[in-house]
Write a protein that binds this DNA or RNA. Structure first.
Length: 422
DNA sequence: TCTGGGGTCCTAGGACCC
DNA sequence: TCTGGGGTCCTAGGACCC
């Protein structure tokens, strides 16, 4: 039997903030989303206080202040770097690793020396001592069961952070203890539907008929059912597959009324999206620009729109993409609205080498000139930091930029912000 | 004042073609 | 007036994940 381990960092963003501030140990910590909008990570103490995931900061402000909760704006440079460090430890000790998200990875623990449970405990201790990030490890015969085991490991103090469902004396007990909404692949909508049918937990779910599940939850639901029964449907993937669409968008710190500000933001987001595009070695032949007002402000006039701009030649050339996105945005912009958000989406992605050229293409000057230029820009920005070289269309100090009033230093990625030891 | 951002997959339905 | 049926492609919307 295959033994799949799921290594999951505990309260990842909150743990990252704590890694460099031992004085925060045992203190409640929360991390906020962009614009300091809502809570997206909580330490164990913050969960105990009762602050829910996604809680709007302004609504919970009194509770947070009263309990002396340490509050941080999100600092993705820091989290990304600590994530890389955790993953490096996994690659060093595990024969096969699949990075699943910034704070999770699947590892193959079949036939590891000393047995899966003991191996996982050593792995956990090593990650924690080398990176300062606490992790939990769940082991199951499928990814979905590994997820269930991981949840059990986190919530049951007696498991000490590692739980092997494949060698459990009573796996059904664990399934019965897992609410159906906590099964990987079953969200709140389907959970509600299932509970109406009397399905409360993972064990009830496992006993359902295949046809019924397929009819009510489509083939994705059926895959979840089979995985819970121990039949693997999701394989290990060596690296992350290339993205099929790339989105870059952001809410503004304040409502934006001016077209020029919106166009600057559009240029900035397009720059970000194009960077991601080149990083995965792709080119795009379609860019979509969209904007919207604040849908929570019921009394105010609402407007949202999007426009898709096909490109005659697939490209990853930032100026070409900015030109297309900005001209699209000019067309859908309407005066008189306070915009809350805008963004771009790149789709119809193809690998940069071996793309189709249209019959109308001139000799691809893209390759002759654009590619070396973009390579040089990327190299500078990787070496000296994001936006060392930027495009004039993005402006300098637009009022549309995000609020991040409580950001921790970028301890690990910027020299000036290194931790000082006195 | 203040309620994230970035993805994937599936299905239904319309447009269009023969 | 009558006006089938099958295929493909695209899009919007729903559901899910972290």
């Amino acid at each position: 039997m295959k033994k799949i381990g799921l290594v999951d960092c505990n309260n990842f963003y909150a743990s990252c903030e704590r890694a460099f501030r031992p004085e925060l140990r045992n203190r409640p910590v929360v991390v906020l989303s962009n614009n300091d909008g809502c809570v997206i990570a909580r330490s164990a103490e913050a969960k105990t206080i009762g602050i829910p995931m996604g809680a709007p900061y302004f609504k919970w402000r009194t509770v947070i202040d009263k309990n002396r909760v340490a509050v941080f704006s999100s600092n993705y440079a820091l989290y990304g770097d600590l994530s890389n460090r955790v993953m490096k430890v996994l690659f060093r000790f595990c024969p096969s690793v699949e990075i699943y998200s910034i704070d999770e990875a699947f590892v193959d623990l079949s036939g590891v020396p000393g047995g899966a449970d003991a191996f996982a405990r050593r792995l956990k201790a090593t990650v924690e001592s080398w990176t300062g990030i606490p992790v939990s490890i769940g082991i199951g015969s499928t990814k979905t069961l590994a997820k269930i085991a991981n949840r059990f490991a986190k919530k049951h103090a007696r498991s000490k952070g590692v739980f092997d469902l494949t060698s459990s004396p009573d796996p059904d007990l664990v399934l019965r203890w897992t609410p159906v909404c906590d099964v990987w692949g079953i969200g709140s909508r389907h959970a509600k539907k299932l509970r109406r049918e009397g399905v409360e937990n993972a064990l009830d779910f496992r006993l359902l008929k295949r046809n019924w599940v397929k009819k009510k939850m489509t083939v994705t639901g059926l895959q979840t059912l089979l995985e819970v029964r121990g039949l693997p449907c999701y394989d290990f993937a060596a690296g992350p597959p290339p993205k099929k669409t790339i989105v870059s968008s952001r809410s503004f710190g304040h409502p934006v009324f001016k077209q020029s500000d919106l166009l600057e933001a559009t240029a900035q987001y397009t720059t970000r999206a194009a960077e991601k595009l080149r990083k995965q070695g792709s080119v795009t032949s379609n860019i979509l620009a969209f904007l919207q007002t604040n849908r929570f402000k019921l009394g105010e006039p609402q407007y949202s729109n999007s426009i898709s701009i096909p490109l005659p030649v697939s490209t990853a050339h930032t100026p070409t993409l900015i030109k297309a996105a900005v001209s699209g945005m000019e067309r859908i912009f309407r005066d008189g609205y306070g915009y809350k958000k805008c963004g771009v989406m790149l789709s119809s992605l193809e690998p940069a080498n071996g793309r189709w050229l249209s019959l109308l293409d001139l000799p691809p000057d893209d390759h002759a000139q654009h590619t070396p230029l973009m390579n040089a820009v990327d190299a500078c920005n990787n070496r000296w930091g994001r936006d060392t070289i930027k495009f004039a269309a993005s402006g300098i100090n637009g009022t549309w930029r995000m609020r991040r009033e409580m950001c921790s230093p970028r301890y690990t990625t910027v020299w000036e912000e290194l931790l000082e030891v006195k």
